[in-house]
Design a protein around this nucleic acid. Structure first.
Length: 423
RNA sequence: GGAGAGAUGGCAGAGCGGUUUAAUGCGGCGGUCUUGAAAACCGUUGACCCAAAAGGUCCGGGGGUUCGAAUCCCUCUCUCUCCGCCA
């Protein structure tokens, strides 16, 4: 959620920035400011009325103590009249506050200055590429054939058990998932991240905190009996660990990592790029999250990008890093770098990580703050990134390293997988 | 799932209808003393709305009763104890 103060102080800049994000209702900014003006007026009126009521009530107490019942009764009538004045003001105030908040909550985060303008993924900017694309033999096949050949992922049985888009990992496939998640977690904790294993369902307040609600409930699986949502990423529970807390400045940065399964309905995204492991409803991912001092968040962003890059290098996969354009960024993000690996047999770039700085957008919703050296309470900045999403990494490992009768694995995984290849 | 108890400031814990603008203790911060530290003593110590002052809001969340609610009522959530079920 954007800060009202910023809207008021930098009105034109906010409008310009929102335009880069292709936000359609720019006129909302002026409407919100007008509502806030009204809110302030009503607040003042309400406070004044309440103040009179409080003072009179106190007098009644004193009169009663002295046994002056009649005077007390007169005062009571006075308070009743104050209250009838207050009531319509209070109702109006509540209504204005609600309307204001409903609109404010639907404003996306402002893109950072270096975010390129643009509407579609075609407008994203390639920052750099790394690793080497393999030269596959003419017999090379995509991963959906390889998983059958080695019998390591079974989508048919997954569909039988649950539905389309639910993978059943088996044998070496299941073990590779385990190896990847352990390797990723070890890699992250070695860099100072504290490991968490969070709940996979969250309540409304948590889903609201990171920006999933109110706008994206259609993307999450929902349990109506308990009013819980299945998490689309562990970013949601992990970032909310510090919701409603004022942390000590010296405890920053707070670095957290978590493995979790992720659940996404992927409503409306079917038809393209959904084969095999490219897009599924349930997948595993290791996430990194940081809560940092506002002055440091862009340094942290670079640090996290480098961290993920190092991890991809250790997996010996060809990758590229994209700076997303305004139109392709998520609702809550101020800047996002996407990491894609090249899946050689399907000749496609697959997104395996997305590293973002949310600045105060999430922490303003969650009220995660710290006290600075002047004793002022300020919002921290939140960032997160995948390190990494497992299925697409697996697809890429399978395709890029395939030989006639085996699939080689990068050296980093050997101790975790217990072998150098899948056969 | 059943029965009972509870939720108060960073923590502990009193208050159970009107000097609570929330006692007291611990912790934190500042000071006195000390070569320094500890102890002792003194002072100070939350968040939110408002440009600020004044004022207002906040005792788990929401609603109600009342001139007045931390205190009474309803409801929801969570915690604890016992019983039941269960990996």
């Amino acid at each position: 959620m954007l800060q009202l103060q910023a809207l008021r102080q930098n009105t034109q800049a906010v409008k310009d920035r929102l335009a880069i994000k292709n936000f359609k209702n720019i006129e909302w900014i002026d409407e919100i400011i007008a509502m806030d003006d009204e809110r302030k007026r009503l607040q003042l009126d309400s406070d004044t009325a309440q103040s009179k009521i409080n003072a009179a009530s106190k007098e009644i107490g004193q009169l009663m103590a002295k046994g002056q019942r009649e005077e007390a009764e007169t005062k009571k009538q006075e308070v009743v009249s104050y209250k009838s004045l207050l009531q319509p003001i209070a109702e109006k105030l509540e209504q204005v506050e609600k309307e204001l908040n409903d609109k404010l909550v639907l404003l996306p985060n402002l893109p950072a200055a270096i975010v390129p303008a643009g509407k579609t993924p075609a407008d994203n900017v390639v920052v750099r590429e790394g690793g080497n694309k393999p030269s596959l033999s003419k017999d090379a096949v995509p991963h959906w054939d390889l998983i059958k050949k080695y019998d390591i992922v079974d989508f048919e049985t997954g569909a039988k058990i649950t539905g389309s888009g639910f993978a059943l990992y088996k044998g070496q496939g299941a073990k590779l998932q385990r190896a990847l998640s352990h390797y990723f977690l070890d890699f992250n904790t070695a860099a100072g991240y504290t490991e968490y294993l969070p709940p996979l369902m969250v309540n409304e307040a948590t889903a609201y905190g990171t920006g999933q609600l109110p706008d994206k409930e259609g993307q999450m699986y929902y349990m109506p009996e308990d009013n819980f949502y299945m998490i689309p990423t562990s970013e949601v529970p992990v970032t909310n660990i510090y919701r409603d807390e004022i942390v000590k400045e010296e405890s920053l940065p707070i670095k957290m990592t978590a493995f979790s399964s992720c659940f996404r309905r992927e409503a409306g995204s079917f038809g393209k790029d959904v084969r095999g492991l490219n897009r599924v409803h349930q997948f595993d991912k290791v996430e990194i999250v940081q809560l940092v001092h506002p002055d440091k968040s862009y340094d942290t962003l670079d640090e996290m990008v480098q961290h993920v890059e190092k991890l991809l290098n250790s997996l010996e996969l060809p990758y590229r890093i994209l700076r997303l354009c305004g139109g392709d960024m998520s609702f809550a993000s101020a800047i996002t770098y996407d990491f894609e690996v090249f899946s050689a047999a399907q000749e496609k770039w697959l997104e395996v990580s997305s590293v973002s700085n949310f600045e105060t957008f999430q922490t303003n919703r969650m009220k995660i703050r710290f006290k600075d050296s002047d004793g002022k309470t300020k919002l921290v900045h939140s960032l997160n990134g995948s390190s990494l999403a497992l299925p697409r990494i697996m697809a890429c490992l399978l395709e890029n390293n395939q030989e006639a009768d085996k699939i080689n694995l990068p050296a980093a995984l050997h101790p975790y997988f217990g072998a150098a290849f899948i056969s």
